[in-house]
Amino acid sequence: MRAIGQIRTANRRELVLGASAVVLMSDLVARMMVATASAQPVQGAGWQELMRKILGDAKPVQGQIKLEVPEIAENGNTVPFTATVESPMTEVDYVKSLHVLSTANPVPAIAAFHFTPLSGRAIVSSRIRLAQTQDIVVLAQHSTGRFVMQRREVKVTIGGCGG
């Protein structure tokens, strides 16, 4: 009886040791993967996930957003951008938010803009950084819950992630 008990304890110890080794290994692998990902952003990594998070169960309608970005940007450090969403902008029907996503930047979320009926018009302009040639995706949510989206490619000559 005692012998069996000892064997069992040994097994459990081995199990615990083995499990912690696996945890350590997977942690290392995960860290290495993160390091590789940040060093070389892969086209399409992360931004779809972000889009799913923003949308939830909603299905966005293509169009109804005017997205003004240059076709070719010589300097990826500062790319002018303007987004206009059609909306009456009244208390009952206005554009709540507009998300700007990049498909190939190290950080896929560029910005989120929030409007109110006091905005009068759902228009925003800014300047963005683009690491390389890629697509800009904008997602807008109306106060009714409806989503609209637009997508445009910008060719980048000199990337905006110098350093």
């Binding site: 450090n77 500062t78 790319v79 303007t82 902008m89 700007v100 990049s102 930047n105 190290p106 950080v107 979320a109 560029i110 910005a111 989120a112 803009f113 929030h114 409007f115 109110t116 009926p117 006091l118 905005s119 009068g120 018009r121 228009i123 925003v124 302009s125 800014s126 300047r127 963005i128 950084r129 683009l130 905006g160």
Partner: peptide, 28 residues
């Protein structure tokens, strides 16, 4: 505008240095 929110922006590292922002206001 007089304490009521008009516009808000959550910015990330993808916004250029010396950030430029233009938005609209319906003056009540």
């Amino acid at each position: 505008f007089d304490g009521k929110e008009v516009f808000k922006a959550d910015l990330n590292s993808g916004i250029s240095a010396n950030p430029y922002l233009a938005f609209h206001l319906k003056v009540p």
